[in-house]
Simulated assay, not measured.
Amino acid sequence: MSRSYEFDNHSQKALGSLNVTLSLLAPFALEFVQRGMLGGALVAILCGVVGTWVVIRGMAFLGEALAHGMLPGVALATVLGLPVLVGGALSAVAMSVGIGALQRRAKLSYDTSIGLLFVSMLALGVIIISHSGSFATDATAILFGDILAITSADLVLLAAAAAIGLAVTCGFHRSFVALALDTRIATVLGLRPRLAQAALVGLVTLAVVASYQAVGSMLVVGLLLAPAVAAGHWTTRIPTRMLLACLFGIVAVFLGLVTSWFAATAAGASVAAAAIALTCLSWVVRAAVAGIRSTTHATTAPVSA
C-alpha cells in the first residue's frame, strides 16, 4: 500500500513538473516569439563574442556611446521613411570614424573623444526628434527595442552580422590578445595594433547595431557586458569565456521572453534585466563554490605536530 502511494506521489510530482515546463514553453508555439528567440540568440552570440573583448579591454564606455550615437541616424531614417537599421548603422560608423579622427587630428585622449561625440550625437538625435511631430510613437522601440517584431529578413541580417563578427574575431584573435597585453608587443610581433584596434571598434559597432532591434539603444550595453562578466566568473581562457558568454546570453533571452509573456513586461527590458540577474546569480554561486572549496581544503588539510 505504501509503495503504491509513493509511486502515485512521484507520478503526480513528475506530471506537475511536466505541466510547468509545458506552460513555460507555451509562448514559443507562436511564430513571432520563435523569431524573437532565434533573433535574440543570434544577438547573444555576437554580443557574447564581442562583449568578451569589450570587458577585457575596458571598452564599456565606447559601447554605451555608440548605442546612443545611433540615435541621430535612427531618428533621421524614421522621419524620412528609410530602414531604421541602415540609419543607425551609418550613424554609428560615422561616430566611430569621428572618434579616430579626433584622436589623430585634435590629439585628444580616447575617453575625451568618445565623450565629446557621445554628447554631440545624442543632442543631434534629440533635436531631430523634437522637430518631428509624429515621432513619439516610435521612441519606445528605439530606446528599449522590440524583439517580438523581428522579421524573417531581420533574422537573415542578424545571422550575417553574427557570421561576420565570428570571422573577424577569429581572424584577429592573436592581434587582440597582443593588444590586450601591450601595444608594443603587438607592434614588435608585426600584428599592426592600429588595425586591430580599428577592427575591435568595428566589432563593437556591429554588435551595437545588431542588438538595436532586440534591446534598443538604452539597454544594449547590458546584453553586451553582462554575459561576458558572468562568464568571467568561471574561466580565464578567452575562447571558453566567449562560449560561456554566448550561453549566458541565450539563457537571458529565453528568460526575458518568458518573463515578458507571463508578467506582461517590455520584452527588451526583460531580456536585459535577465542578463544582469544571471550575472549576479553567477557571482553568488561562484562565491559559494569558492567558499565551500576553501572550507573543504581547510578541513582536509593535514595538521602538523
Score class of each variant (00 low, 15 high):
188 V>R: 01
74 V>T: 12
69 G>R: 09
80 L>N: 10
270 S>Q: 07
243 L>C: 09
72 P>E: 13
225 L>V: 14
268 G>A: 12
79 V>Y: 02
170 C>F: 15
262 F>W: 15
257 L>A: 05
133 G>D: 05
172 F>K: 00
228 A>E: 13
31 E>H: 06
275 A>K: 02
111 D>Q: 12
42 L>G: 07
220 V>C: 07
79 V>W: 05
212 Y>W: 10
120 S>H: 00
270 S>A: 15
4 S>R: 01
28 F>G: 07
200 L>A: 07
13 K>H: 06
146 D>N: 15
157 L>R: 06
108 L>R: 11
245 A>T: 03
186 A>Y: 09
8 D>Y: 06
267 A>H: 13
109 S>T: 04
19 N>A: 15
185 I>H: 06
130 S>I: 10
32 F>A: 00
225 L>W: 08
225 L>M: 13
190 G>V: 03
261 W>C: 08
32 F>D: 01
220 V>R: 03
135 F>S: 03
78 T>R: 10
168 V>L: 14
35 R>E: 05
155 L>H: 07
265 T>R: 03
117 L>S: 12
67 A>E: 01
245 A>R: 04
290 A>E: 09
151 T>F: 07
292 I>N: 01
291 G>S: 04
143 L>R: 06
182 D>V: 00
237 R>P: 11
262 F>E: 07
55 V>P: 00
87 G>D: 07
302 P>E: 14
104 R>A: 15
259 T>W: 06
76 L>N: 09
241 R>K: 02
231 A>I: 11
144 F>E: 04
212 Y>A: 00
105 R>W: 15
50 V>S: 12
264 A>L: 08
279 T>H: 11
148 L>P: 03
168 V>P: 15
282 S>N: 10
289 V>A: 02
181 L>W: 06
45 I>Y: 02
263 A>M: 14
236 T>I: 08
32 F>H: 05
284 V>L: 14
292 I>D: 01
69 G>N: 12
36 G>C: 10
91 S>C: 08
298 A>D: 09
11 S>H: 03
261 W>L: 05
126 V>H: 00
90 L>K: 07
116 L>Q: 00
187 T>K: 03
246 C>P: 09
264 A>K: 03
93 V>Y: 10
31 E>P: 05
75 A>P: 05
164 I>F: 13
16 G>E: 14
191 L>Q: 00
259 T>R: 04
157 L>C: 09
246 C>H: 02
256 G>K: 11
167 A>C: 10
139 A>W: 08
104 R>Y: 08
158 L>Y: 10
56 I>K: 03
135 F>C: 03
293 R>K: 09
80 L>R: 05
247 L>N: 06
20 V>S: 13
269 A>V: 02
249 G>M: 02
176 F>M: 08
263 A>T: 12
237 R>S: 14
185 I>Y: 01
91 S>M: 11
255 L>I: 13
150 I>C: 10
245 A>C: 06
5 Y>D: 04
163 A>W: 11
132 S>A: 14
132 S>D: 04
164 I>G: 10
302 P>S: 09
286 R>V: 01
283 W>A: 10
233 H>Y: 15
50 V>R: 08
181 L>M: 11
253 V>K: 07
130 S>C: 10
219 L>S: 00
89 A>T: 15
73 G>D: 09
91 S>E: 14
141 A>T: 12
290 A>L: 12
269 A>Y: 02
5 Y>E: 00
